[in-house]
């Protein structure tokens, strides 16, 4: 993976695979504490303590199409390369939460990447799942909650091209304005 936005896309897809109806994604760039924090939380079926212990093993996957699952392991590697740590918690029937924190100024830290592209892909590709996305850079913050949009749309699906374009404009501008402090 070239950047963290691609990791986020990949890991959020895990939650969707686990039957989540709501996925929360928080990305925080804190230049004062010199940290990048990425949180992904889903309300999918969760993992048992036994499976959770094995989840970071690349030779463990729930998939049946192949026998290795590299998503989490690759993310963990990217986080560790930037002097970071990753924590995975999960409860059966409740969901799974992933929190990663790393050093913002680390020379090996991968760029954040195209967050708007990732969120749009998720919304458009999974129009029955809701997403709450928050992006924070120091004091500035942007957030998008598809539940609010859906409530206004009634029968129109969230992935209707006109709605997607509207969300895209909002995401691109919002992220750009939030980033400005850097």
């Amino acid at each position: 993976m070239e950047d963290f936005s691609l990791h986020i896309l990949d890991l959020a897809e895990n939650g969707i695979g686990a039957g989540a109806s709501l996925i929360k994604i928080n990305v925080t760039e804190d230049t004062i504490e010199d940290k990048v924090i990425i949180e992904i939380e889903d309300n999918g079926k969760g993992m048992s303590p036994e499976f959770l212990n094995k989840a970071l093993d690349p030779f463990v996957t729930t998939r049946t199409t192949r026998r290795v699952g590299l998503g989490l392991s690759l993310f963990q590697q990217s986080v560790q390369e930037a002097d970071g740590e990753m924590f995975l918690t999960s409860q059966l029937g409740v969901g799974t939460k992933l929190v990663a924190s790393m050093k913002h100024s680390h020379i090996d830290r991968k760029p954040i990447g195209d967050l708007a592209g990732t969120i749009l892909c998720l919304i458009e590709g999974n129009s029955d799942v809701d997403f709450v996305f928050r992006y924070k850079v120091d004091e500035r913050a942007y957030s998008l909650d598809t539940r609010e949009i859906r409530a206004e749309l009634d029968l129109i699906p969230l992935n209707h091209p006109n709605v997607v374009q509207l969300i895209r404009e909002n995401l691109v501008t919002g992220i750009k304005e939030t980033k400005q402090t850097l």
Binding site: Y142, E148, E152, L155, I156, N162, I167, N170
Partner: peptide, 23 residues
């Protein structure tokens, strides 16, 4: 950053609800 305006969403809704394909 402003939220996605409810007006814009309503506009799409009104335009599209008439179209058979979406319904």
């Amino acid at each position: 950053m402003p939220k996605i305006s409810i007006e814009d969403l309503r506009k799409i809704k009104e335009q599209q609800l008439n179209k058979m394909s979406v319904r």
